[in-house]
Structures are given as structure tokens and as C-alpha cells.
């Protein structure tokens, strides 16, 4: 996958657990886990906004684009 999710890094920096974050964001722990483990196929702007507000960060701190090696060579 070429979008990496750095949610665990930000959570560690803010010293917040998955359960706490899920509660403050207002989504289920299972859904947040899907995002954290990079299984999510799409992220709603509302979810992203809430996560950024709680973690006091920018979307770019959570989402990172990784260029594929194959595309890079081209």
C-alpha cells in the first residue's frame, strides 16, 4: 500500500491509548483499529478532522505517501 498510516506513532507521542482515542474521536475501537492497522480503504474527512483535533496534529502527520519502487524507477 502506498499510503502509510502513522497513527500509532502519533498516539505514542501523545501518550494516548486506542480506547481513549476512539472515545474522544467518537468512533468504535474496532474502526480505529482498522485505520491503525492500515486495513481501511477510505477515511472520512470528519474522522480525519476529529483524529487531528484530538491528537493536535496535521493530516500529514498521520498519513504518509510512500512512492512504489517500480514507479520511482520509471
Amino acid at each position: 500500500m502506498s499510503i502509510r498510516i502513522n497513527l500509532d506513532v502519533m498516539m505514542a507521542r501523545r501518550k494516548i491509548s486506542l480506547g481513549e482515542l476512539a472515545e474522544q474521536v467518537g468512533i468504535t475501537q474496532a474502526n480505529l483499529s482498522i485505520l491503525k492497522t492500515e486495513k481501511a480503504k477510505a477515511v472520512r474527512f470528519t474522522t480525519l478532522e476529529a483524529v487531528c483535533r484530538v491528537l493536535d496534529c496535521q493530516p500529514g502527520d498521520i498519513l504518509e505517501f510512500i512512492a512504489d519502487e517500480k514507479n520511482e524507477n520509471e
Partner: peptide
């Protein structure tokens, strides 16, 4: 359905 399921 899966796309919907994996949208957070």
C-alpha cells in the same frame, strides 16, 4: 459493501 465496511 467491503469498501463501505472499511471506511472509517
Amino acid at each position: 459493501k467491503e469498501e463501505h465496511h472499511f471506511t472509517v
